[in-house]
């Protein structure tokens, strides 16, 4: 069972306290109606799914409840870092 560092709690805690929440930095547009069908499809459905370094979201759902971002290697399943929502991509 992995240990995940919550950037809000400042603690590494077992993964059962956390919930995965998909790829990070997929921002909802301020005005979705201005998006073409193709742009909206990309926003809704298309994800990077990389082999290796992945920016992704987690929620410390059984802890502080905050959503945060992480960089995890999808090959080794190791976390490189975690950072607060709203901070720039790492």
């Amino acid at each position: 069972m992995m240990l995940i560092h919550c950037p809000y709690c400042g603690e590494r805690r077992p993964e059962i306290e956390f919930a995965y929440a998909g790829e990070a930095h997929v921002a909802r547009p301020v005005d979705p109606s201005a998006y073409t069908d193709e742009e909206w499809e990309r926003f809704l459905f298309i994800r990077a799914n990389p082999r290796g370094r992945h920016n992704e979201r987690w929620r410390h759902i059984h802890g502080c409840g905050r959503f945060f971002n992480a960089v995890r290697d999808t090959v080794t399943d190791k976390f490189e870092t975690t950072y607060k929502a709203g901070e720039p991509r790492k």
Binding site: R28, R59, G65, R66, F67, A85, G86
Partner: peptide, 8 residues
């Protein structure tokens, strides 16, 4: 709802 409130 927490997701939209916290992140969007």
């Amino acid at each position: 709802m927490e997701d939209y409130l916290q992140t969007e």
